Amino acid sequence: MPQMAPLWWEALYVMMTLMLLMTSIIIYHMKPATPTKNKAMRLFSTCNWKW
């Protein structure tokens, strides 16, 4: 009969797998860049630089 890993190893593995899955889902559904960055980018793109 093969040796089995302790139960807490299996629990740790399952917990880490679930955390990785949840983190991936959260990152996938996060909104893109914050509005303040978008405002700053729009301001710089509309400026008419004369260098």
Rank of each mutant, 00 (worst) to 15 (best):
M1R: 02
M1D: 03
M1G: 07
P2K: 11
Q3G: 09
Q3L: 11
Q3C: 06
M4A: 06
M4R: 08
A5P: 00
P6V: 03
P6Q: 04
P6K: 03
L7K: 10
L7F: 07
L7Q: 07
W8N: 12
W9M: 02
W9H: 03
W9Y: 01
E10M: 08
A11F: 03
A11H: 05
L12P: 00
Y13D: 13
V14A: 08
T17L: 00
L18W: 06
M19E: 01
M19P: 00
M19D: 01
L20H: 12
L20Q: 12
L20V: 09
L20G: 13
L21S: 04
L21D: 04
L21Q: 02
M22K: 13
M22L: 15
M22D: 08
M22S: 15
T23Y: 00
T23N: 05
S24A: 14
I25G: 00
I25E: 00
I26M: 12
I26G: 09
I27H: 07
I27R: 15
I27P: 00
Y28N: 10
H29M: 02
H29Y: 03
H29F: 06
H29E: 04
M30R: 10
M30W: 13
K31M: 15
K31E: 13
K31Y: 12
K31Q: 15
P32N: 05
P32Y: 01
T34K: 11
T34A: 07
T34Y: 10
T34I: 08
P35T: 07
P35A: 07
P35W: 09
P35S: 05
T36E: 13
K37D: 14
K39I: 03
A40Q: 13
A40T: 07
A40Y: 10
M41N: 08
M41F: 11
M41Q: 14
R42V: 10
R42H: 15
L43C: 01
L43P: 00
F44A: 05
S45R: 12
S45G: 07
T46H: 10
T46L: 05
T46V: 08
C47R: 11
C47I: 14
N48V: 05
N48C: 03
W49I: 14
W49M: 03
K50S: 13
K50I: 11
K50T: 09
W51Y: 14
